[in-house]
């Protein structure tokens, strides 16, 4: 009996990405630079988050032709983003055979009530989260991989740090709790009881959790790995830096060797300017992408 699209192959695909860097790329040339630098996957999107911020307006799924051109150009997996709740965009990406779908707050949400029922798809999904409740709600909907939301396109790591610390702190709480307390914890987290119980029994999330949203330097990547991230997404950080190829390679090295500080120092030398950052406190509420789809 051969089965495709199972929980094991969808979650397993994300497990194979652990310790790696997934890079946002806007065209074939960038995808090739990312692959050459050692990316474990690329995220194909027309505009990186900082450009989406700058452009304003409605951000949607990318042109399928652009995504397909990138799929043809590299042998590593190709991911692409859909708007939160946009089942048609998700079916379109499944139809062109992308390897992973990011139901992403970086794009303008299509539905402010419901996320996609991700169990229905053969292609796995990754979703963002700021805390354990959000993480378990997304897993309940069928997400096979999680990432922090961070604050995309800011080049500012503080939100990703907050989200990773929050999730891990709440996991520790669930794991150390008495089984009698789990229903109340489930109520307080607004998370499905069976998944709270699963975290309690496993001692960890049942899927991998990457860091995303604000990673701009090799040191940022190492910081997130040391906080317990399983791997790293880099959005605007690479192709908005002065020397993308060198930056990309350095972030890959820092992610693979997050405690080898002599090595990270070496690869961080003379990298040129990183992307320009944004102080989170200068963002208005409607400019904060992390608050979308919670």
């Amino acid at each position: 009996m051969t089965q495709t699209g199972t929980t094991a192959v969808k979650r397993g695909m994300a497990q194979m990405q652990k310790g790696g860097v997934i890079m946002d790329v806007a065209n074939v040339e960038q995808a090739k630079i990312a692959e050459k630098a050692g990316a474990v996957a690329v995220m194909a999107l027309e505009r990186v988050p900082s450009d989406i911020r700058a452009a304003g307006g409605v951000a949607r799924m990318s042109d399928p032709a652009m995504i397909k051109a990138i799929m043809d150009a590299v042998t590593i997996p190709v991911m692409a983003k859909v708007r939160i709740g946009h089942i048609a965009e998700a079916r379109i990406l499944e139809a062109i055979d992308v390897d992973y779908i990011d139901e992403s707050e970086v794009l303008t949400p299509a539905d402010d009530n419901y996320h996609i029922n991700k169990t229905d798809y053969k292609v796995p999904f990754v979703c963002g989260c700021r805390n354990l409740g959000e993480a378990l709600r997304r897993i309940g909907e069928g997400a096979s991989m999680l990432r922090t939301k961070g604050e995309p396109g800011t080049g500012n790591i503080i939100e990703a740090v907050r989200h990773m610390e929050k999730v891990n702190e709440q996991i520790n709480h669930v794991v150390s709790a008495d089984p009698d307390q789990l229903m109340t914890i489930s109520r307080d987290l607004r998370a499905p009881y069976d998944l709270v119980k699963q975290v309690h029994d496993l001692g960890k999330l049942p899927v991998v959790n990457f860091a995303a949203g604000g990673v701009a330097t090799p040191a940022d990547a190492a910081l997130m790995m040391n906080l317990g991230a399983d791997g790293i997404f880099v959005g605007s950080g690479i192709f908005h830096s002065e020397n993308p190829a060198k930056f990309a390679k350095a972030i890959v090295t820092a992610t693979a060797h997050p405690t080898d500080y002599a090595l990270i120092a070496k690869v961080s030398e003379n990298l040129g300017k990183p992307m320009k950052g944004i102080d989170i406190s200068t963002l208005t509420d409607d400019q904060k992408m992390a608050d979308r789809g919670i």
Partner: peptide, 14 residues
């Protein structure tokens, strides 16, 4: 490499 296709074709079997 990637001999069975892309992720959608990933599978489990006995």
């Amino acid at each position: 490499r990637n001999g069975f296709g892309r992720q959608r074709e990933s599978f489990e079997t006995e």
